[in-house]
Amino acid sequence: MASALFSILPRKCFAFLKNKTLIIDEPEVHLHPSLMGRLWRALESARPDCLFVFITHDVQFAALHKDSPRIWVKSFDGANWDWDFIPNSDLPEQLLLELLGNRKNVLFVEGESNSYDVQLYSALYPDFYVVPSGGCTQVIANTKAFASTEGLHSLKAYGLIDRDYRSEKELEALKRKGVFSIAVAEVENLFLVKPLLRVVAGHFACCNVDEAVNKVIDHIINERFRGQIGRQICQATVATLKAQLSALDFGDVDNDSVSDRFKEAVGSIVPEEELERQKARFEGALSRQDYDEVLRLFNAKDASSSIGHFFGVDNKQYKEKVIGLLTGEAREKVLEALKPFVPVISA
């Protein structure tokens, strides 16, 4: 492979005198990503006597040189450069390099680069650099790792996760660590909140606004939520019991006391009581027809994909239509409709 790569390099690349310093600006230009790393690695191997200095904006290329000293430029005032060495961090290598080149405070969110989380939160938090992190566990881990990385203290990082089945105590503990939650069970439920439903109904002008919104509310509560309430109660109970188990503190124990302390700690958790508590929450919301509470409790990602027809829109396209409104004249109305359901995070 190396000889094949050498054959496409200009002969001048090998004509430098020994022990020289080569400064290559933007080595990624005009090269396919699959070739770039192998090409420059081959050149470096061919001239080990030379010092190669690469100036690049490509974080993947920089990540390939993790065994080499790496410098990032913080700022340039027209006369002076503010720079530093890449700090050690528990953040994934490529993510760290990406964040170092960013000038905004960071907001770690769930989902992938093309998910609804990123699209909605980028619009709702324009002063932040929104970084998709997969699941909530990784959001929490990234937020913690960012805070503990020396050299990043000029920026702030927060996390934003779904509420899921977490208790208020859990959510408050996460908030103290810089991880916030939305006011509904999951991001898909943001597409179901009343103010947004009114904006959508008004925008498409396909029906009476109040009538359409009331039909959606009845559908979500009395068809979707009611139909899944038993499974939802069980899932909420299991999630809460897992959280209680993970929070157990056995204190200082030795070989003679560890078994007793474990039994004592576990004995403080009563599954039957938690099941009854969750039943009261879910069945209470249903009996009161409390739509806002239902959206806080209901974890069903497909619920928001069942309401488009109430507005004359294909069910599968409903969320895409809402995202589309964020790029048009209804943008401000959509943002105002969603803001009461997302936390205020100061940049």
Rank of each mutant, 00 (worst) to 15 (best):
A4C: 13
K156D: 15
V200H: 07
E188P: 01
G111I: 08
F128I: 15
V266M: 15
D117V: 04
L160G: 06
D49M: 04
C50P: 01
T327W: 05
S89H: 02
I8T: 13
C13E: 15
N102G: 08
F225R: 02
E293Q: 05
E172S: 12
N105L: 07
G230V: 14
R70G: 01
S148L: 14
A205E: 03
L245N: 06
D127L: 09
V313I: 15
K319P: 02
N88A: 12
Q119I: 11
E28R: 10
G135F: 05
S113A: 15
I182W: 00
F225S: 04
A145T: 04
R38A: 14
A63P: 12
S257N: 06
L97W: 03
K263P: 03
F6C: 13
L245D: 09
G251A: 05
V29R: 12
I8S: 11
E168Q: 13
A212Y: 03
D82P: 07
A4Q: 15
H309W: 09
I71R: 06
Y125K: 02
R281Q: 10
D164E: 15
P48I: 05
D84P: 09
K12I: 13
I323S: 10
L31D: 10
L192C: 02
I182M: 01
L124N: 00
K242I: 13
G227C: 10
L190I: 12
V53C: 03
R231G: 14
A347G: 07
G159T: 03
P10W: 03
F250S: 05
K263I: 14
G284H: 01
A141F: 10
Q244G: 05
F262N: 05
S304G: 09
G227M: 10
N222W: 02
D67L: 01
F128T: 14
A303K: 07
N142W: 09
R226K: 15
A330M: 12
A79F: 05
K321N: 12
V322I: 10
V266D: 10
N105G: 08
R47V: 11
A123R: 09
A337E: 02
E272K: 00
N189H: 05
K74Q: 13
F341V: 03
G78I: 08
P87E: 02
W81T: 12
V193Q: 02
V199L: 07
I221R: 06
C206S: 13
C207Q: 09
L5W: 05
M1L: 12
S257P: 04
V313S: 02
S154R: 03
L100Q: 05
T143C: 06
S89T: 04
F85D: 10
I23F: 06
Q94D: 12
K333Y: 11
I323R: 07
S306V: 08
A2S: 07
W40R: 11
F310A: 06
S133R: 01
Q138L: 14
Y165T: 13
C206H: 09
F61C: 00
V29C: 08
S7K: 11
E26L: 11
L174H: 07
I71H: 02
A236Y: 05
P271R: 05
E223W: 11
I233T: 06
K74P: 03
Q228C: 14
L9S: 02
D260Y: 06
S68I: 08
E264S: 13
P48N: 03
V258D: 08
V294T: 14
V130A: 06
V193C: 00
F146M: 08
K339E: 11
R70Y: 00
G151Y: 01
V131C: 08
H57K: 04
Q317R: 13
